[in-house]
Simulated assay, not measured.
Amino acid sequence: MISIKGLRKVFTSDNRKINAVDDLTLNIQEGEIFGVIGYSGAGKSTFIRLLNRLEEPTSGSIEIGEQEITSLNTRDLRKARQEIGMIFQHFNLLWSRTVKDNIAFPLEIAGVAKQEREKRVQELIDLVGLSGRENAYPSQLSGGQKQRVGIARALANKPKLLLCDEATSALDPETTNSILDLLVDINQKLGLTIILITHEMHVIRKICRRVAVMEKGKIVEQGDVLDVFSNPKKPVTKKFVQQIMGETDEAEDTEKILATYKEGKLVRLHFIGDAANESLISKVIRKFPIDINILQGKITQTQSGGYGTMFVQLKGEEPDIQQAIEFIQSETTVEVEVVRDVQ
């Protein structure tokens, strides 16, 4: 487990102190993919650089496994860093070296014998899907391929922890998804703990189970991704959720729906978790003699399940409609809210 307590980083600029990371406390479980999200200036990049002491903390403690990182001397820190891999937004590759030589670089520094080094490099090339590109130079690679080299290089010394600093921000959406799939694959195959920082909520949604939201150096909200998505408490978290759900004004949408549909019972369904994957509408139609007209809705998936809202119009005899609503409320986890009864 990674245990971070009271972590603080203060920079001084023009005789003014800036709390880049402010009294941050966080626990991350071994083997999980943990997301940290925040807008530019939130302190997330400083935070991740504190974890391997690329930035020296002003105060606080960082414990990775049973090792107190903040108390290590230079020699012990160098050794500890071999178990902490890191990938960057702009790849940070050595442009005069080939793919295999970039991946081999940390092994050379660690003094690994040539034969063992070559074997390890080939294993990593196969793992990240770069077979056939071993002798290419970074200038000959796409953005996604460069990041795959960066990931392979970060894994060279068989780390227990992988830090991802905006690892997909420089990539197009399709390439981003392929890199995220690769990180999930690596997490599952190697049991590697991954801490991923980003300003993109869809990245968190796709591969993380837990997330911490940062603002002005502090963690303002944290928890299971599904819980944070479905019930955001802070304004900054609500803005991130809008990245996924779209810039919608639910009150305005409700008024438009009410103005358009003048008959039947108008109902808002709230889906959270496994309920979002159920074939609810078809199940209700088969069970009760009513018509259901889907008016508007959006369901978004996370690693822990889906969430979202759907507006529907229920038409039929009042007793049948009421039985259908009671069935949904009693037999599923879908929340039902009657917006207007215009029978």
Rank of each mutant, 00 (worst) to 15 (best):
A154L: 06
I103S: 03
P159M: 07
D101R: 15
A113K: 15
A170G: 10
K160D: 13
A110K: 08
G144T: 10
V149A: 10
E63P: 01
T168L: 08
R133Y: 13
T70D: 09
I69E: 03
L155I: 04
T74I: 15
G144P: 11
K100R: 12
G60M: 00
L161E: 12
H90N: 15
R78V: 12
M86R: 06
Q147I: 06
F88N: 04
E116K: 15
L124V: 11
L130I: 09
V112T: 11
L171N: 09
L141S: 03
R133S: 14
Q67K: 14
K146Q: 15
R117D: 09
N157K: 13
T58L: 06
I69A: 05
I84N: 02
Y137E: 05
R49Q: 11
D172W: 13
P106G: 14
S131V: 13
S96W: 00
A170S: 15
L141H: 04
A152Y: 04
G111A: 11
I64G: 00
S61Q: 13
R153S: 02
D165F: 04
V112P: 04
L161T: 04
G143K: 05
Q89S: 09
A154W: 08
E123N: 07
G143H: 07
R53W: 01
Q147L: 02
C164S: 01
T70F: 03
V149G: 06
L141Q: 09
V128H: 07
A154V: 12
A167R: 03
F91N: 00
V128I: 10
P159D: 07
K119T: 10
E166L: 09
L51I: 14
T74G: 02
S71K: 15
R81E: 04
